[in-house]
């Protein structure tokens, strides 16, 4: 179970980081969303994975750790606020700069590379 869990965390982190490294704002937003899933899962697991732990007092003998849950709960909401901010920022950047590139313009190296690659084809 633990192994499966961390593989999922690793894969989401992997996809999130990769998307964050893209050059367009929408991909970065998606990447950030993905990363925040991974981070929340990561933090949540610090309370360990309890399958049948009670969340409410008096319902069972074994309890799930409430502290990471409380922290992750607020993290989810704050994460939403952050992603919303980035989304709006990218919309604003699109309006002001006329494109949706993270750098606001074509990065100097990639543009040239693509052109040369296309020329080869």
């Amino acid at each position: 179970m633990e192994l499966l869990y961390v593989i999922c965390v690793g894969v989401t982190t992997f996809c999130g980081v990769f998307l964050c490294l893209r050059g367009r704002t929408f991909s970065v937003v998606v990447g950030l969303t993905m990363l925040s899933y991974a981070v929340n899962l990561f933090l949540f697991s610090s309370g360990r994975l309890s399958l049948n732990g009670a969340a409410i007092l008096g319902m069972s003998d074994s309890y799930a750790d409430p502290l990471p849950q409380a922290l992750v709960l607020t993290a989810i909401v704050i994460g939403f606020a952050m992603i919303a901010f980035v989304v709006i920022l990218s919309i604003r950047a699109r309006a002001d700069l006329g494109n949706d590139l993270v750098d606001g313009r074509d990065p100097p190296d990639t543009g040239k590379l693509i052109k040369s690659n296309r020329a080869k084809l």
Partner: peptide, 22 residues
């Protein structure tokens, strides 16, 4: 390059997670 970076980070995060989760 980006896949390399992302895979390394993902692997490290998973390893750390497994290290403390167990």
């Amino acid at each position: 390059r980006d896949i390399g970076i992302a895979a390394a980070i993902g692997g490290i995060v998973a390893t750390i997670n497994y290290a403390f989760i167990s």
